[in-house]
């Protein structure tokens, strides 16, 4: 019998700690598939963040480093500069990348570090129990914005893909989502390209993946997926924001 579906080699055969219905699992799988497709597992070094993906170093079958909160792009820079032949990626959430690590991501992008960044945006601090993130939408309730995010008090959500696309350093920036099978396929292509760019030496690639947090949003998984479509996508439009290969077609 022909095998039509199996665990990617790059994905460890372990039970993850992610909550039921959370799309981290899908995104992990897409990263692993991209690594498998490109045949780069034995030279890939991943960097895990602080946040929900803090234990990601247990989930990929490559060498891994666990970074301090927000510092993954700096850790990646250190690794890539001394091991240019290695394929180096970070996997970071919104609190890690867009808040405490805002400086690190901006400057890794500005330097055009030849690394791949997977940025998982679910608009909340999941691991610490549902606090407001820099990407929490206006009006959304969290444990630290219990009356809903009020721009007068808490300012506005940060659009990372758009912001980094203003820099000359990055080679490729795209925002994707994973709330339908079609979008998962599209996300896979984007993530694979972000790794392929690095293999080809094209420079900094970042894929922002809109994700869910059923637990801290207080929603059933399917409703959480609908919320991404109905509330997040209008504020965080999907698409390519920077692509040095698509001359003149940047958004």
């Amino acid at each position: 019998m022909a095998k039509v579906f199996e665990r990617p080699k790059a994905l460890a055969d372990v039970v993850t700690h992610y909550c039921p219905g959370c799309t981290h699992g899908i995104i992990h799988r897409l990263v692993a598939e991209a690594i498998d497709d490109l045949g780069i597992l034995d030279r890939t070094i991943g960097v895990a963040p602080v946040g929900c993906a803090v234990l990601a170093y247990n989930y990929f079958e490559c060498d891994m480093q666990e970074a301090a909160h927000g510092r993954a792009p700096a850790v990646c820079t250190g690794i890539k500069r001394v091991r240019p032949e290695a394929i180096v990626f970070s996997y970071q959430g919104d609190g890690d990348l867009a808040s405490i690590g805002a400086g690190e991501i901006v400057h890794a992008a500005a330097r055009g570090e030849n690394i791949t960044v997977i940025f998982v945006n679910n608009g909340i601090y999941g691991m610490t129990g549902g606090q407001m993130a820099p990407t929490t939408l206006v009006g959304h309730k969290t444990t630290t914005s219990p009356y809903g995010r009020d721009p007068k008090l808490q300012g506005y959500p940060v659009r990372i893909a758009e912001m980094l696309a203003t820099l000359d350093g990055p080679a490729y920036i795209e925002r994707v989502a994973v709330y339908t099978p079609q979008l998962v396929m599209k996300a896979k292509q984007a993530i694979k390209r972000a790794f392929a760019n690095q293999v080809e030496g094209k420079g900094f690639s970042l894929i922002e993946v809109l994700s869910t947090c059923p637990t801290n949003w207080g929603m059933a998984p399917v409703d959480a997926l609908k919320r991404v479509a109905n509330e997040m996508v209008p504020y965080y439009p999907l698409g390519v924001y920077k692509d040095i290969d698509a001359k003149g077609e940047d958004k």
Binding site: I45, V47, Q65, A67, A68, R71, A74, V75, C76, T77, G78, I79, K80, R81, V82, R83, A86, G103, E104, V106, H107, R111
Partner: peptide
């Protein structure tokens, strides 16, 4: 590499030393 901050610099050291 001139880092964007001392914090970034020491974390680059972390990555490089780990490598």
């Amino acid at each position: 590499v001139q880092a964007e901050s001392e914090i970034a610099a020491i974390n680059m050291v972390y990555g490089a030393a780990g490598a």
